[in-house]
């Protein structure tokens, strides 16, 4: 949405926008209510979502929360919360491109530096399952593709 608005302002340059050029606003407004609801649900359930993902990781891939002898689950949690919040925001304002530019590309290189790709891959895969418990199917339809994008970029 925000990227679209920026493009619109640039393209329209001294004339009026056409119906076609404004279509994205219509599409956005049609889903705005849904996006806002989902955003608030995620905000309210953040702690539960994170804990549930962590429990699943602990049960299936416990080595991902350890580095050698050190327990890195606190670090994992900070990173995961950060990404979840950015993703929720991207869903609210319908700006996945912006998410990539403002967080994911940078964070991808940081996750690679810490060799955390596998952890990210499983974390954001699991998170897609977990958030479905908190969102309606329609809301999940909007949010899960964003988590999938985070998984794709951070997980490799």
């Amino acid at each position: 949405m925000l990227s679209h608005i920026e493009t619109l302002i640039r393209e329209v340059d001294g004339r009026y926008a056409t119906d076609n050029e404004l279509l994205f606003m219509q599409n956005y407004l049609q889903t705005a209510r849904l996006r806002f609801n989902a955003y608030q649900k995620i905000q309210k359930s953040e702690r539960a979502i994170i804990q549930q993902v962590k429990q699943k990781l602990k049960a299936t891939e416990p080595q991902l929360l350890r580095r050698g002898k050190a327990d890195i689950s606190a670090k994992w949690q900070r990173d995961t919360v950060r990404v979840l919040r950015f993703c929720a925001h991207a869903m609210l304002v319908a700006d996945e491109e912006g998410l990539e530019e403002s967080l994911l590309l940078w964070f991808q290189s940081i996750m690679r530096a810490f060799k955390a790709q596998q952890s990210c891959d499983i974390t954001y895969k699991t998170m897609q399952d977990v958030v479905r418990q908190y969102l309606t199917p329609q809301e999940a339809e909007l949010f899960c593709p964003i988590l999938a994008r985070a998984r794709r970029l951070l997980g490799q």
């Binding site: 953040e46 702690r47 994170i50 606190a74 670090k75 949690q77 900070r78 990173d79 919360v81 950060r82 810490f114």
Partner: peptide, 11 residues
């Protein structure tokens, strides 16, 4: 939500 964001530096 009391998740410590500033602690990123510890990483």
């Amino acid at each position: 939500i009391d998740i410590d964001e500033a602690a990123f530096d510890q990483l």
